[in-house]
Amino acid sequence: MNEQILDMLKELRPEYDFETSVDFVMDGLLDSFDIVSICGMLEETYGIKIDGLDIVPENFSSVAAIRSLVEKSLGK
């Protein structure tokens, strides 16, 4: 899943290096509209519905955080 998430991030913002950033949002790699786009990509890819209350910057700060969000939405 990590690779899939990384591919999505690279597709969305190919100009950034997501592998060296420690916090995608704090480092300015993702803004709130990128987060909306990623939500759409995750929901489509994994067939999930992300709870609105979970759409906060900290859940999109790293690949691990996004993965945790997906797993939570999958009910794991």
Partner: peptide, 10 residues
Amino acid sequence: NGSDVFTFVQ
């Protein structure tokens, strides 16, 4: 601030 407005509404 789209992020803050979104969180406020939700």
